[in-house]
Write a protein that binds this DNA or RNA. Structure first.
Lengths: 343, 343
DNA sequence: CTGAAAGCGCTTACAG
DNA sequence: CTGAAAGCGCTTACAG
């Protein structure tokens, strides 16, 4: 591999001059620039990015950590959509994204701290945020630029984040169902320890309360984002008999499909007998029977925004501090309608 | 950020000694090791990975390039499954994966060459392989370790690759359909310029030929991996009347679903009137109506294998040269059955 | 087992 | 506009 010195020798200039032409410094005469470029071309020279990084103390790389151990993660829309947003923006700025595998939540933090601590990346986008471990303080101690995808817990209210407006749009979904006449509405959430699950519950409760409805505790269940979680929710709620829900809102499409299938196996028609709304507007929703009304969450846009904020603050040399809430969008299909008229 | 020198000073040793304890060299006495570790701990020292990389000429990173511009890419199972395989193995070896966005196929090559040329990564896994641009020669000129996911064209038969056995397993799918009595079988492929499409066609033709069947040219169509491609294939083939296929094999599940929907809209029942088989065994197949029989292609395993080969050869200091073919697996569900008995 | 020195391949403040 | 020199933070062959 030829270095800057080989090029300098061939072009008859000092290595620093070669450096200047390749790092785009303005103070180079046209003639020497051309001489250098010609020499570099002949030698097949390409600047060593690692050496440059060491010198300028920047890698033009941002990092994420993901748990490769959890298979469902890679079947879901979240990860690929996030990658798309990350890549779109990093590309625009000439950055790249460094991905660290991890064996679970705790290890994700280890990986992230290792990457920023060893200066392998200039900043990170934090994809998961479990409040049981204090990642944020650790990151702040490292003085590492980061932005969260998802809100932090209140004790870290000052840090940078981008989140979808989960409470508000869940409330809107419930209002949509209320508007069609439903009064008994179920909420099937994901992992109850994760903030988004609580935010959705907040929106759910607010909507029902505004409508003067006191939800039964049995109308709330957690399906952990798997199909069977949706089925089990239906099984449990069916036992309520007259008080069973006439509409279900599920926090992802896979659970919503589990709900639909369980209901259909009981001989119930959707949406004539029971309505179902999912989340994420995935291909699964498009091709469900009936096509599933679903709350689209723009992960790709969120990730793009987070990446913009991160890179801009890296370039400006300060810590990111913006906080952005991104709207969602209810995509209406055929799985929700008015409740059956009581005879 | 404290450096090796700060630690050395605090511990009262030479920087090279600190380096030795952090790079795991054996020749360090227990007492000085402990002194160094204590000092490092107090200062919050973490070795700078970039400096280390420059010195040892290795980054412990492998790279991929993906086109962020093509949305469908991130809705498909290929990318996330590949990432899972990559991360599983890189994690195991203490490597990470650097992802470069790109604006299209040609740019993917630019990105890859830039990364290896600038020594940002030790090697690459090549995810896409368009024979219209000679990526492989370029990579070989750079002396960059790489392994292809997918076979190269014959002029580069010597390089390292991992591929699924597309021809063989497509042949098996067709044999499965022949075995149930089908004689008019359609093949709906992806991009006809891509090798896998040709390989599948080869398997398709071989199976029919073995059965003594001369397929109509009209039974072969290309749906470019989108639902509407499947629908259009049905539209065109329906015009054949008596000679229309009684079974379709589609090269991904989305096209297969397009095929099913188009057929169902014509009032045909699946599988009573027409059989359909998809590819990838995605969630879409599981939840289709009827559930879709689908050829599972283990992208995650393929990527893991490619990554193993790559990293092992990087560590051993030679170019990768293994060639591996990975079996697929036909997952039988309800969308394929015997053809209708002619009255 | 440990130190002193040279080197990895760039960048940039300082002169001229 | 260009050169000479020091520096980024490690590693390692060479002595002892």
């Amino acid at each position: 591999m030829p270095t800057i010195r080989d090029v300098a020798e061939k072009a008859g200039v000092h290595p620093s001059t070669v450096s200047r032409v390749f790092s785009g410094k303005p103070s180079i005469s046209q003639t020497t620039r051309q001489r250098v470029l010609a020499a570099a071309d002949e030698l097949g020279f390409q600047p060593n990015a690692i050496a440059r990084s060491l010198s300028i103390q920047r890698t033009n790389t941002i990092a994420i950590a993901v748990s490769h151990a959890y298979q469902g993660y890679f079947e879901d829309v979240f990860f690929p959509q996030v990658m798309q947003g990350l890549l779109e923006i990093t590309y625009k700025y000439g950055f790249r994204v460094l991905v660290a595998g991890s064996s679970g939540h705790a290890d994700e933090i280890t990986q992230l701290l290792d990457i920023v601590g060893s200066r392998q990346a200039d900043g990170i986008v934090v994809l998961s945020n479990r409040f049981d471990v204090d990642l944020i303080s650790a990151l702040q101690n490292q003085n590492a630029p980061f932005v969260l995808l998802g809100k932090p817990d209140p004790s870290h209210a000052g840090c940078a984040w981008v989140d979808s407006d989960d409470a508000k749009y869940t409330e809107q979904v419930i209002n949509y169902l209320l508007g069609m006449g439903h009064r008994r509405i179920a909420y099937v959430g994901g992992d109850p320890d994760v903030l988004v699950t609580k935010e959705r519950l907040r929106g759910y409760s607010a909507a029902l309360q505004n409508a003067g409805i006191q939800p039964l505790p049995e109308w709330v269940d957690y399906g952990f984002f798997v199909e069977d979680g949706g089925r089990q929710a239906v099984r449990r709620m069916s036992r309520l008999g007259e008080l069973a829900p006439t509409a279900y809102y599920a926090a992802n499409d896979l659970m919503a499909i589990g709900v639909m299938k369980a209901l259909q196996e009981q001989g119930l028609r959707i949406p004539a007998d029971v309505s179902v709304v999912g989340t994420n507007d995935s291909l699964l929703a498009v091709h469900a029977h009936p096509p599933l009304t679903s709350l689209f969450v723009p992960y790709s846009v969120m990730a793009a925004r987070a990446t913009s904020i991160l890179i801009q603050s890296i370039l400006a040399g300060h810590m990111p501090n913006q906080q952005v809430t991104i709207p969602c969008n209810l995509v209406i299909r055929a799985s929700a309608g008015p409740p059956p008229v009581l005879s």
